[in-house]
Simulated scan of single mutants.
Amino acid sequence: MKIGFIGCGNMAKAMIAGILKNGLCAPADITVSAKTDATLEKAKAQYGVCTQQKNAAVAQVADILVLAVKPQYYEKIIREIRGCVDSSKLIITIAPGKTLSWLAEQFSGPIPIVRTMPNTPAMVGEGITAASPNEYVTPELLDTALQVLRSFGKAEVIPENLMDAVVAVSGSSPAYVFLFIEAMADAAVADGMPRSQAYTFAAQSVLGSAKMVLETGKHPGELKDMVCSPAGTTIAAVRVLEEKGLRGCVMDAMKACSDKAKSV
């Protein structure tokens, strides 16, 4: 299996690292292109992958081609590579707003495409990726795509009409969580805790709490109730969060994110 990456930013590097760590293919079977020679040199030094300056050259050699560039560059990139792409290749996209119908129109052929939305925790092997295949993706090709996507975290197949919701709930949400961790650490620092230690306590608490949701199968509300003793410290904090409208604020933020994804 030969995999090509057009673009080699943080997400592409996270994917490459996961693919190599899980032995899906050898470094020599991965080819990347990027805007600058410096980026290509770093990728070759870090991962031992092959590099190409021309995007079409990557498309020619790849069985699976990942378009790891920003949405605004998709039309230009596809124009460059579509002469090298046919139904024998699988295209994986990671751009919000670029629908399967739009992609099919750009490629103008029966090309197997899996539209995905990963997130930055992929950089530590804990990503979550949504995947929506078009009608040309066979079950075997979808299994191959999911194998790639699961090399750097979890992956779920979803109907495409939920992709904008995925952008809000997982694609962009690490930023919300980082804000929450930073705010908790700031409060701990205000109470006298050294900053590096405050970040450790806050981040580990978020990590452990998320793991409890995933591994116990309990409703988040039930887990919250388990921490809130009658007349205790936790319920006092929860009351303030409710007064300040934490839930409504988060929901409004995610709605703004989803609306923006629709307009990209």
Rank of each mutant, 00 (worst) to 15 (best):
I6F: 08
G9L: 04
K13V: 03
A14P: 00
L20D: 04
K21N: 13
K21P: 02
C25D: 05
A26V: 12
P27T: 12
A28V: 10
D29W: 03
T31R: 14
T31F: 04
A34S: 14
K35Y: 13
K35F: 11
L40W: 01
K44V: 14
Y47F: 15
G48A: 10
G48N: 08
T51A: 10
Q52E: 15
N55K: 03
A68L: 03
A68P: 04
K70I: 09
E75N: 06
E75Q: 14
E75M: 02
K76T: 13
I78E: 00
I78V: 09
C84K: 15
V85R: 03
S88K: 15
K89A: 11
I91A: 12
I94G: 03
I94E: 06
I94L: 14
S101K: 06
Q106N: 08
S108F: 11
S108N: 15
G109F: 11
G109A: 13
I111Y: 09
I113M: 11
V114D: 06
R115P: 04
T116Y: 04
N119M: 03
G125R: 03
I128T: 14
I128W: 08
T129K: 03
A130G: 14
A131P: 05
P133Y: 08
N134H: 05
E135K: 13
Y136Q: 11
Y136R: 08
V137D: 04
T138C: 13
T138F: 11
P139Y: 11
E140S: 14
D143G: 12
T144I: 13
L149N: 01
R150E: 10
S151Y: 01
F152S: 08
A155S: 04
I158L: 14
I158Y: 03
E160L: 04
E160T: 02
N161G: 01
L162P: 00
M163L: 10
V169L: 14
S170F: 12
G171L: 11
P174I: 07
P174F: 12
A175Q: 02
A175K: 01
A175F: 00
A175R: 01
Y176D: 01
Y176M: 09
Y176G: 01
F178E: 06
I181S: 02
I181D: 02
E182C: 09
E182K: 13
A183T: 14
A185D: 10
A187V: 13
A187T: 10
A188S: 12
A190E: 15
G192M: 07
M193F: 12
P194Q: 07
R195S: 01
R195P: 00
S196W: 06
S196V: 00
S196M: 12
F201V: 15
F201L: 15
A202Q: 01
A203L: 08
Q204H: 07
L214Y: 07
E215C: 04
E215V: 01
T216S: 14
G217S: 07
G217K: 09
K218G: 03
K218A: 15
K218E: 15
H219F: 12
K224I: 00
D225N: 05
D225M: 00
T234W: 05
T234N: 09
A237K: 11
V240N: 07
L241G: 03
E243L: 06
E243A: 14
G248C: 06
D252F: 00
D252N: 15
A253K: 05
M254L: 07
K255Q: 12
D259F: 10
K260W: 05
K260I: 07
V264N: 00
V264A: 00
